[in-house]
Computed example of a mutant assay.
Amino acid sequence: MISGPLSGESCIQIANEVAAVFQIPVLLAVPGELYDQASYQCQEHRVFVILSPLQKLMTMQAIALIEKFSDQIRLLEKQIQKEQQKFKDEKMINLCKLKLIETYHWSEEKAHSFIGKKAMDHSCTKVYVAKVLLNRHQANT
C-alpha cells in the first residue's frame, strides 16, 4: 500500500514499478484531484487506486478485494500453465507420431497405439516415450 506525502507523479510511478517488478497488487491512496490521473495511468498494472484521506472500513474492504483478486489471478495463472504444458505434451506426441508415420509408413492409428503400448509396457507417460523416440530419431539422423 502506498500512501503518503509523495508528489502525484512519483507515487503513481512508484506504484506502477512495484506492481510490475514484484508482480504484486498495489493499493495506491491519492487525493481527489489526482484520482482520475492515477486511475488512468495505473490501469495497465495491478494497481488499485482509492481516495485519501483513508477511511478504515474502505481500506479494509479494498484490501479484502485485492486479496480475492490476487487469489483468482494465481489460480488462473496456474490453469494457464497447466494448459500450456498439456499443449506442449500433445505437440510432442503428435510430432513423434509424424516421425513414426514418415519413417515406417504407418497409419496414424498404428503410431498412436505404438506410443501408448510402449508407455504401458514401461510404466511411463506417452510424453516420455515420445521424447525418447524423438531423441533416438535425432541420434540416427
Rank of each mutant, 00 (worst) to 15 (best):
M1Y: 14
G4N: 11
P5R: 10
L6A: 07
L6Y: 13
S7C: 10
S7A: 10
G8C: 09
E9Y: 11
S10N: 15
S10G: 02
S10M: 14
C11L: 07
Q13E: 14
Q13L: 09
Q13T: 04
I14A: 13
A15C: 09
N16H: 03
N16E: 08
V18E: 07
V18M: 09
A19E: 03
A20G: 03
V21H: 12
F22A: 09
Q23K: 14
I24E: 12
V26D: 08
L27P: 10
L28N: 03
L28Y: 03
V30E: 04
V30Y: 04
P31V: 02
E33S: 08
L34M: 09
L34D: 14
Y35H: 15
D36M: 11
D36N: 15
D36P: 07
A38G: 08
A38T: 02
S39Y: 13
Y40V: 00
C42P: 05
Q43G: 01
H45N: 13
H45T: 01
H45I: 00
V47K: 03
V47T: 01
V47A: 04
F48A: 02
F48W: 07
V49S: 09
I50D: 02
S52Q: 10
S52G: 08
L54C: 06
L54I: 06
Q55M: 12
Q55W: 10
L57E: 15
L57M: 10
M58H: 12
A62K: 05
A62Y: 08
I63H: 04
A64I: 00
E67W: 11
F69I: 00
S70V: 00
S70N: 15
D71E: 15
I73W: 10
I73C: 11
R74L: 12
L75W: 10
L76T: 03
E77M: 04
E77R: 04
Q79T: 00
Q79L: 05
Q81S: 05
K82E: 15
E83I: 01
E83L: 12
Q85Y: 09
Q85N: 11
K86T: 03
K86M: 08
F87M: 08
K88D: 12
D89T: 02
D89A: 06
D89S: 08
E90G: 06
K91I: 00
I93T: 01
I93R: 01
N94L: 08
C96Y: 02
K97A: 03
K99I: 00
L100V: 00
I101C: 07
T103E: 13
S107L: 05
S107I: 02
E108K: 07
H112P: 01
H112S: 14
F114N: 11
F114S: 12
G116C: 11
K117P: 05
D121K: 08
D121H: 06
S123Q: 15
T125L: 05
K126A: 13
K126Q: 14
K126C: 11
V127D: 13
V127K: 10
Y128M: 14
V129C: 08
V129T: 05
A130H: 04
L133W: 05
L133M: 11
N135G: 07
R136C: 13
H137N: 09
A139P: 07
N140I: 00
T141C: 07
T141D: 15
